[in-house]
C-alpha cells in the first residue's frame, strides 16, 4: 500500500554549506522500522531529482526514531552565494514529506494493530 511520509513522519531541514540536511522523524516508534527500511538513500536521491544535484548521505538515529539525510550540492552554492529563493533549504523538510513509499499492507496493519 502507498503511504505518504507526512502521515507517519515529521521533519526539519536546514543548510550545511551547499548541502541541505533533512531530519525525518517517525511520529510513533512503530513507524521507525518502516522508514528505516523504505526511505533509503536511493529513494531520497530519486525523490529530489532536479533539486539535489549531488550524492545523498543517510544516518540513523533510532533513539529519536529518526533518519538524517544530507543532500549534497543542493542549495545553489550555499546560503550567502545562492540565488535560490529557498537558499537555506528550509522547505525541503516538507518536500521530503511529500514522498510516497510502497509498504506491504501487512506491515502497516500489523504495526497499527500493535
Amino acid at each position: 500500500m502507498k503511504v505518504q511520509l507526512i502521515d507517519i513522519c515529521h521533519a526539519r531541514s536546514g543548510d550545511k554549506g551547499d548541502a541541505a540536511n533533512v531530519g525525518l522523524i517517525a511520529r510513533e516508534e512503530k513507524f521507525y522500522p518502516v522508514i528505516k527500511q523504505y526511505v533509503t538513500r536511493a529513494a531520497v536521491k530519486k525523490h529530489f531529482k532536479g533539486i539535489c544535484l549531488g550524492p545523498v548521505d543517510r544516518f540513523e538515529l533510532p533513539n529519536l526514531w529518526a533518519l538524517n539525510f544530507l543532500l549534497h550540492n543542493t542549495l545553489g552554492g550555499g546560503g550567502t552565494v545562492s540565488l535560490k529563493h529557498d537558499a537555506q533549504g528550509k522547505t525541503l523538510a516538507a518536500a521530503l514529506l511529500r514522498m510516497e513509499i510502497d509498504v506491504p499492507a501487512a506491515l502497516m496493519k500489523k504495526k497499527k494493530a500493535k
Binding site: 540536511n21 531530519g23 522523524i25
Partner: peptide
C-alpha cells in the same frame, strides 16, 4: 516532537 525536530536541525553525522 518539538525537541526532536530541533535536535535534527542542521546536523551532519549524528
Amino acid at each position: 516532537q518539538t525537541v526532536a525536530e530541533q535536535l535534527l536541525y542542521e546536523i551532519g553525522d549524528p
